[in-house]
Design a protein around this nucleic acid. Structure first.
Lengths: 214, 214
DNA sequence: TTTTAATAACTGACCAGTCATTTAGTAACA
DNA sequence: TGTTACTAAATGACTGGTCAGTTATTAAAA
């Protein structure tokens, strides 16, 4: 009955390691970018030696792919599903979708991953392609379709629906990049829910007062 | 009179070198990111040996700072000046400012630089700070002030003017990042002028048809 | 005892930055 | 005009450090 006073030097937890490593890698990649991220740092944050990483991943690129891929999976189809669930007036759908995205982006590291995808797109074109084909383009397309349907119902003005979808989500994305880029150096942050509430009001009803309409 | 048949191996052009190197560096940095960019590549694109770079710059970071700094200077104050030049109704100012930014972003590498600033902000906080303090925050502030003035005139609805400014420029930024990130892997591009024309119409007059207003 | 998760020391490639050498330009002189 | 002497721009082989990936070894589990 030797009391185990100190933490054991090793602990064998094969099943949990990959997820732990991916999570640690995410934080380091998001902070430094792919090239400047050191495997030693990732290992340290995962509470593991560098060698152990190579029991679960082939290369550094492999880890990067796992990080970016993991951030896609749970979001695929979410916007499509919401569009299907809101057949009624557009306003409800817009509020639902933006609230959902704002929530995801606030409570998960999706913002950091987005920054990585943008920053490393030229070095990893296949990652940019997967993100576009499976996530971004799908979500944008689903929104555009919903808007087009609303146009067919006579609810929404004429105009390019894909552009309307872009207008809708842009402030959200920029606010996230703002948070990642400028807030750490002292910029005033934006409050995501407040921004989106005002944005949707503006989109639906316009910026001008009744009197100032031409 | 010996005819000079081949290109000379060296050419001495001290005055032009720094600008040439900065331009070459911009294209390499924008493509690869700071860490993955090789000085050999920058040198090759500048038509110079690696050693020559060190006649004009101290370190790789120095070149990076020059690249990012160079992209700020000509834009400082532009938005402020436009705001001062448009005392009239807001619509004119919005069109002017967005057209100007769209033009700059289309015909200069500012988009690539923006991507770099976002991607390397954590590694070079002082660069992010300079960009924020001297360019981004100034421009946003100038727009917010103009909008606030319009609110005081009763021209614009109540609401946070800084958020309104964010709403205004976001689609522009996202469209640029879209171009840099997803268009190279096959995404449908956005037409900047068209996007901004529709965006301003939507902001001013709303997305909904008269009948669909609540 | 056998198996395998995990380590830590190690290796080899790569690359920022240096420096001895080469070449172009220039001016003084014949 | 051609020759020589000098300055400075430019080169490219080299170096030292860093880091992705490997391996010999150790310790926990079965």
């Amino acid at each position: 009955m030797t009391m185990d006073t100190g933490a054991p030097k090793f602990r064998r937890r094969k099943a949990d390691r990959p997820a732990e490593i991916v999570q640690a890698a995410l934080s380091v990649f998001a902070e430094k970018g792919f090239a400047a991220a050191k495997l030693e740092d990732i290992a340290r944050r995962a509470g593991v030696s560098k060698g152990a990483i190579y029991l679960y991943f082939e290369t550094k690129e492999d880890i990067f792919r796992a990080v970016v891929g993991q951030a896609i999976a749970p979001n695929i189809g979410a916007v499509k599903a919401m569009a299907a669930a809101h057949p009624g007036p557009l306003a409800g759908l817009l509020r639902g979708v933006t609230a959902h995205i704002a929530d995801v982006v606030s409570h998960t590291p999706l913002g950091g991953v987005l920054k990585m995808v943008v920053g490393e797109a030229r070095n990893f074109p296949e990652i940019a392609r997967v993100w576009h084909d499976e996530l971004v383009s799908q979500a944008l397309g689903a929104m555009a379709e919903a808007i087009e349907a609303a146009q067919a119902r006579g609810e929404v003005k004429a105009g390019d629906p894909r552009t309307y979808a872009l207008q809708l989500i842009s402030p959200l994305l920029v606010a996230v990049l703002w948070r990642e880029t400028f807030v750490p150096v002292g910029a005033r942050p934006f409050d995501l829910p407040a921004v989106m509430a005002q944005h949707i009001d503006t989109l639906l009803c316009g910026l001008l007062t009744e009197g100032a309409r031409e």
